[in-house]
């Protein structure tokens, strides 16, 4: 019963295309096939655009206080209302997108730097180096991550940069794992062994031949981690361990909402919805990337 041979559901990607197109192109095509991925990607693109163009599109200066306009509910003047200092919530929301996106990019960059090179090195060299690095990363992974982040912030002092450093550190093991596993997979491919035999240095081999193989799965981890970092930044900033006044992020806006919950319940929604949508969009994007990748891999008949 289990040996049912159902015909492949997708005749479009049948193997045996006349020539091998570059891996990346296949992946991109696979990714773009899904509507949800396109919507998610479109949303994120708009978000980045809005963040970049914040000074042009924000109706008010996000930091101008107006005591007479404190905690006003949404109106024609202030589409999303005003906060406890009379600042325009919509403008702050737009500027916060800058902080939130930039911060999550920083965190992911940190994770990439801490995780990727050791991962490639461990997978490439194996032996004691691999053992030691894997041990360290495993410990990092099984430690309660927020506790680690809080500790790092405690020692380095609150602030968005330190917070993102902390989040980057706790996300690094994922990059390490993926990089290590992929490197181990390709290390024994003939062209890589040939490159070593030809006397190319280790570094050169790693950069020229291994990195291109490691990147596609890493891109997946990046897109998923970006969403995670947005959420993590929000909670650290909410606790007052992240962004510092007068700058704001969605998380710190929620902190304001929290302390004015009785008088201005409407403050809870805009930043929360933005965090939620952004995280969701990154999740869907990651999903799309993964499915696109599996698809293009199986289309080439390389899938295990």
């Amino acid at each position: 019963m289990k040996n049912v041979t159902t015909p492949l559901d997708d005749p479009v990607d049948a193997p045996g295309e006349p020539y091998e197109e570059p891996a990346q192109a296949g992946i991109v095509r696979g990714i773009l096939r899904r509507k949800s991925t396109i919507v998610a990607g479109g949303f994120l693109a708009l978000l980045v655009l809005g963040a970049v163009l914040a000074p042009l599109i924000a109706p008010y200066d996000p930091n101008v206080q107006n005591v007479l306009q404190r905690l006003r509910p949404p109106s024609a003047d202030h589409l999303l209302g005003t906060d406890d200092y009379g600042r325009d919530v919509l403008s702050r929301l737009i500027y916060s997108a800058r902080v939130s996106l930039q911060a999550s990019a920083q965190a992911v960059a940190v994770a990439l730097v801490i995780g990727l090179p050791p991962g490639v090195a461990a997978g490439y060299r194996g032996g004691w180096l691999d053992t030691v690095l894997t041990r360290i990363m495993d410990t990092l992974m099984s430690a309660p991550s927020l506790v680690l982040a809080i500790t790092i912030v405690a020692v380095l002092g609150p602030g968005i940069t330190n917070a993102m450093l902390a989040i980057g550190v706790i996300m690094a093991p994922r990059f390490f794992r993926v990089a290590r596993a992929t490197t181990m997979d390709v290390r024994h491919e003939t062209y890589i062994e040939a490159s070593i035999a030809l006397g190319c240095g280790n570094l050169r081999t790693a950069v020229r031949h291994i990195l291109p193989n490691v990147m596609p799965p890493i891109v997946l981890v990046i897109s998923v981690s970006l969403g995670a970092a947005v959420a993590a930044e929000a909670s650290l900033s909410f606790l007052g361990l992240g962004v510092r006044a007068p700058a704001s992020s969605w998380g710190s806006m929620l902190s304001t909402a929290s302390s004015n919950m009785g008088l201005a319940p409407y403050l809870v929604w805009p930043p929360g919805v933005m965090i939620f949508l952004t995280v969701l969009a990154f999740t869907y994007l990651g999903d799309g990337v993964r499915k696109g990748m599996t698809r293009s891999r199986s289309a080439r008949g390389k899938g295990e």
């Binding site: 959420a231 909410f238 990154f282 990651g286």
Partner: peptide
């Protein structure tokens, strides 16, 4: 706090 951090993992990694 790093709540969603985890979820990402569930989806990214095996």
């Amino acid at each position: 706090m790093a709540g969603p951090t985890v979820q990402a993992e569930a989806r990214a990694g095996p």
